[in-house]
Simulated assay, not measured.
Amino acid sequence: MKYISFNPIVWLCVLALSLPTAAKQPQIKTPPVSVQLWSVKEALKADFHGTLEALANMGFAGVEFAGDFGPYGDNPSDLKKTLAKLGLQTSSAHIGFDVLTEQKLAQTLLFYKTLGVNTLYVPWDERAWDANRIAQFTEQLSAAHAQARHFDMEIGFHNHEREFEPYKEATFWDYIATHTSNSLPLQLDIGWVHYAQQDVQALIKAYPQRTRSAHIKVVAKNNGLSPILGNNGFQWDEIIQTLIAEGKTQWLVLEQEQYPEQMTPLQSVAASKQGLDKVLARLQN
């Protein structure tokens, strides 16, 4: 009878190969990043194409329009082609109720649909923090959203700070969220939420799957903060994780409303983009 010699090193190798390998933790898939074009509005007026090219070179995946279409005001199809050549998509657009009247609604929706925009946000309406007019506001917002859905589009609302003033044992923002359809998107502006001293993550969780777009920025207004993203102590990692998990956020929209001295708007946007890229890189590793 032959005996097989016992080699502990060999047996340890065999044992290691037979054990199930630990499952690798899946990486977080972060949403693409666009830029609100209001951030560079003067540069757009001076050089529309050059500014779009500069933003594309910064690594943005898309842009959010705010009423300036350069030489394409009557030609959304060609504007879409121009963006495509630069590798840019249209994440969304900001519009006012002036273009959502019964006479203009269909034309407005057709323009943006042709441009490739499926989600429109009303960014400002003083009725949104007026106790006597907020009901009228939510009714009009809901009606416009319902009409847009016939075009496979959506119309939502974007906050500033006054929507978080107290109203009916909650806030105006809570009233808007609870008096509109769960299908109506809420674009949370993180900068203004911080400025209003609200809990960002609690707001995202309060209305799940409705923060389908978020403005990523810092409001530096008499609070000693730097307007450049990443230069303050905000917990962006946790916020973006909550946006993904609870808000079902599809786009992160970088916005730059304030610019440090000696920096142009484009330079400020580039600096904040670098700060955001570092956050996203941490989440993906």
Score class of each variant (00 low, 15 high):
K278C: 01
I228Y: 09
W192T: 06
V193W: 11
P26Q: 10
A84F: 05
Y259M: 07
S142V: 01
L283N: 08
Q27I: 13
E257L: 00
L203F: 02
K278G: 01
A23D: 03
L100G: 03
Q235D: 14
A23M: 06
G96C: 00
K80H: 11
L186E: 05
G233V: 01
S268W: 00
Q274C: 04
L83V: 12
A93D: 07
A106W: 07
A270V: 00
K248C: 03
W129Q: 12
L110W: 06
L225P: 01
P260V: 13
R162H: 02
I240F: 00
T108F: 01
R282C: 03
A196L: 02
Y167Q: 09
E255N: 01
E246R: 09
K41P: 02
L229M: 07
A131R: 15
Q140T: 15
Y259A: 07
L141V: 06
K217F: 03
L79C: 10
P31L: 13
A206L: 05
K217S: 10
V14R: 04
Y207S: 02
V269N: 01
Q140D: 15
N231K: 15
Y72L: 02
T211H: 07
L17R: 03
L15P: 03
K205R: 12
L276R: 11
H158L: 14
P20E: 08
Q198S: 08
L120K: 06
F65T: 05
A245Y: 03
I239Q: 04
L44S: 04
A61V: 03
L266W: 10
L88H: 07
E163T: 04
D277P: 10
D130E: 01
Q147N: 14
M263S: 01
Y112P: 04
N232Q: 10
L110T: 12
Q197W: 08
D98Q: 11
A46K: 09
R162P: 00
Q147W: 12
W192F: 07
V117G: 09
P123H: 14
T264S: 14
Q201I: 14
S213A: 13
D174Q: 11
I228L: 13
D98T: 10
I228V: 15
F151E: 12
L254F: 02
G70A: 00
A144G: 09
T264Q: 02
L86F: 12
E257R: 00
N75V: 05
L52T: 12
R282G: 02
M58L: 14
A54N: 12
S272T: 06
L188Y: 14
I240R: 08
S5I: 09
H179P: 08
G233P: 05
D47H: 05
I95M: 04
Q241N: 07
F137V: 11
Y3P: 05
A46M: 02
A93H: 06
L266F: 11
A22N: 05
A148E: 13
A148L: 13
N222L: 05
A202S: 00
F111Y: 15
T138Y: 01
K221M: 12
L88P: 06
S226Q: 03
T30D: 05
N285S: 08
A177H: 10
G233Q: 08
P265I: 00
V279I: 14
A146E: 15
Q201G: 09
I216S: 06
G224I: 01
F151C: 11
L44H: 02
Q284Y: 14
L243V: 13
G70T: 00
T30Y: 08
D199V: 04
W129V: 12
V253Q: 01
T90L: 04
E126P: 11
S18R: 02
